[in-house]
Computed example of a mutant assay.
Amino acid sequence: MSGGIGAEEIYSAIKESARLVDAPFSRDKVWPVLSAFEGGFSDAGGVIFSLQAGEQVAEFEYSVQISPGIADPYAHALANGFFTERDDRPVRALLSEILALAPTSEHYIDCGIVGGFKKIYANFPHDAQKVAKLAEIPSMPRAVGENAEFFARYGLQDVALVGVDCKSKTINLYFQLSAPLAGNLAPQTVRDMLRETGMSEPSDKMLAYAGKAYRVYATLGWDSSEILRISFAPLPRRTIDLAELPARLEPRIAQFMQDTPHKYAGALINATAAKWSKTSEFLDLASYYRVSPLHLKAIEAQK
Results as ranks from 00 to 15, higher is better:
4 G>L: 04
4 G>C: 08
5 I>Q: 00
7 A>P: 00
9 E>N: 09
9 E>T: 14
10 I>V: 15
16 E>W: 07
17 S>T: 15
23 A>S: 14
24 P>I: 04
25 F>A: 04
31 W>P: 01
32 P>I: 07
33 V>F: 00
33 V>R: 10
33 V>G: 01
35 S>K: 11
40 G>L: 07
46 G>V: 02
47 V>K: 08
48 I>F: 11
48 I>D: 05
49 F>L: 12
49 F>S: 06
49 F>V: 02
50 S>T: 10
52 Q>S: 13
53 A>N: 14
55 E>W: 06
62 Y>D: 03
65 Q>T: 06
69 G>Y: 13
76 H>F: 02
80 N>C: 03
81 G>H: 11
82 F>L: 08
82 F>P: 08
83 F>E: 12
85 E>C: 01
86 R>K: 14
91 V>C: 12
93 A>C: 03
93 A>G: 13
96 S>V: 10
96 S>D: 14
96 S>T: 00
97 E>W: 11
97 E>L: 00
99 L>V: 04
101 L>A: 14
102 A>N: 10
102 A>R: 14
105 S>Q: 09
107 H>C: 04
108 Y>M: 15
109 I>D: 12
110 D>L: 08
110 D>F: 07
110 D>S: 14
112 G>T: 08
114 V>Y: 00
114 V>N: 05
117 F>D: 01
120 I>Q: 08
120 I>N: 03
120 I>W: 11
122 A>N: 12
122 A>S: 15
128 A>F: 07
129 Q>T: 07
133 K>T: 11
134 L>W: 10
136 E>F: 09
137 I>D: 12
137 I>R: 06
137 I>C: 04
142 R>M: 10
143 A>H: 08
143 A>N: 09
146 E>P: 02
146 E>M: 14
147 N>G: 08
149 E>W: 02
151 F>K: 03
153 R>L: 10
159 V>I: 15
161 L>P: 00
162 V>G: 02
162 V>E: 11
163 G>S: 14
164 V>G: 06
173 L>H: 06
174 Y>R: 08
175 F>S: 13
180 P>T: 07
180 P>Y: 11
180 P>M: 01
182 A>T: 05
184 N>G: 09
184 N>W: 10
186 A>M: 06
187 P>G: 10
190 V>L: 06
190 V>C: 05
190 V>W: 13
191 R>S: 14
191 R>C: 05
192 D>L: 02
193 M>D: 04
198 G>V: 07
199 M>L: 05
199 M>E: 04
201 E>W: 06
203 S>N: 13
206 M>T: 01
206 M>I: 02
212 K>Q: 14
215 R>H: 09
220 L>M: 15
220 L>S: 01
221 G>A: 08
222 W>S: 09
224 S>H: 03
226 E>R: 15
227 I>T: 12
231 S>H: 13
233 A>E: 15
234 P>I: 12
236 P>A: 09
238 R>H: 00
239 T>P: 07
241 D>C: 03
242 L>I: 06
246 P>N: 05
248 R>E: 15
248 R>W: 01
248 R>G: 01
249 L>M: 11
250 E>Y: 00
253 I>A: 07
253 I>P: 11
257 M>W: 12
259 D>L: 09
259 D>M: 06
264 Y>M: 01
264 Y>T: 00
270 N>G: 10
272 T>M: 09
279 T>N: 10
279 T>Y: 13
283 L>K: 07
283 L>M: 12
290 R>S: 01
291 V>H: 08
296 L>E: 09
301 A>S: 15
302 Q>E: 13
